[in-house]
């Protein structure tokens, strides 16, 4: 389990990282937390000739409460986010951060790295797609702002240019009468989820659904926005009937594959169940209730 030989370069700034990516050529890779890249390198499925370490770039891991936004530096670790006081009003972020893989991965893995990796089973994509999220990306031509909805192109593929990096993840704080939940079902601690569902609901004064976003994880090449499921709830009273219709629509929206985590049919059933529950929790949270939620595991 030894990686192919590579050279190691420590970048002091994002600008330098971008330059190094250019100089070191096609086979160079950026390393942040390394929680995806290092296992791939050890199994020799990834064979970069050069690694550019961005972990020593100052202030890239800060989490800032900035008026109507929370801004996460690309190097913010999952565990930093889980513990951050700035996400108190956005419980869906806690649901997600607190259950990503195991403690070691959460201590090391980063939000920027996870998004840039664009693994179809990553937790952050589904979660952040339910919120107003944008990404500040830095490249040779300077910075640009990319909306989260436009960021993912395919499995392991984003709109980032080869020499472009995520610098910051900007999340707009949801309204007071908005609540969200992220539920993911995992077989054991250290693995990707079998299926996940993220829901963010905003209620109006009459307790009907003003707006909603429903996103499914692990059941397609990218996280899937279940727009029909959203339509089943939007402007409607949220009750057993509308929730069931939304869950059915989510089942239809999923595009899962058979693998060791489960059969495609099963995964459809699973995400439908998770959507149903996540709606329930999101609504309670939108009403101001405190509800514990997050990842669930086989056996308990």
């Amino acid at each position: 389990m030894y990686a192919h030989p590579f050279t190691y370069h420590r970048a002091q700034s994002l600008g330098e990282a971008t330059k190094l990516l250019h100089q070191l050529g096609e086979e160079s890779r950026v390393i942040a937390g390394g929680q995806s890249l290092i296992p791939l390198m050890k199994m020799r499925l990834a064979r970069p000739t050069a690694l550019i370490d961005i972990n020593f770039i100052p202030r890239l891991s800060e989490i800032k409460d900035h008026n109507s936004e929370v801004r996460f530096g690309a190097l913010a670790r999952h565990a930093d986010i889980e513990m951050s006081e700035h996400i108190a009003g956005i419980p869906i972020l806690h649901d997600c951060a607190s259950g990503i893989a195991d403690v070691q991965v959460r201590n090391q893995g980063t939000i920027g790295g996870s998004l840039a990796e664009a693994d179809p089973s990553g937790d952050w994509a589904a979660t952040l797609l339910t919120l107003e999220t944008s990404l500040v990306c830095a490249g040779p031509q300077g910075e640009r702002l990319v909306q989260m909805d436009d960021f993912f192109k395919d499995a392991y593929t984003t709109v980032l240019g080869r020499e472009e990096l995520v610098r910051e993840v900007v999340v707009t704080k949801p309204a007071k009468n908005s609540g969200g939940a992220y539920l993911a079902f995992k077989r054991s601690a250290c693995v990707y989820a079998t299926g996940s569902a993220a829901v963010q609901i905003t209620l109006d004064a009459k307790d009907t659904c003003k707006d909603v976003r429903i996103v499914l994880g692990c059941v397609g090449l990218t996280a899937i926005r279940a727009k029909q499921a959203e339509a089943e709830l939007r402007t409607k009273k949220i009750d057993e009937r509308t929730i069931a219709r939304a869950a059915d629509a989510a089942r239809e929206a999923a595009e899962p594959q058979n693998d060791m985590r489960g059969s495609a049919d099963y995964k459809r059933a699973l995400v439908a169940a998770l959507v149903k529950r996540a709606i329930g929790i999101a609504v309670r949270r939108a009403r101001g209730e405190h509800v514990e939620a997050g990842h669930e595991y086989v056996g308990r």
Binding site: D102, K186, R187, S188, A189, C190, V191, Y192, M260, Y297, V298, G299, R300
Partner: peptide
């Protein structure tokens, strides 16, 4: 272990 999923404390 990602596919074999030996039991963890979480289970």
């Amino acid at each position: 272990f990602s596919d074999y999923t030996p039991i963890t404390a979480m289970n």
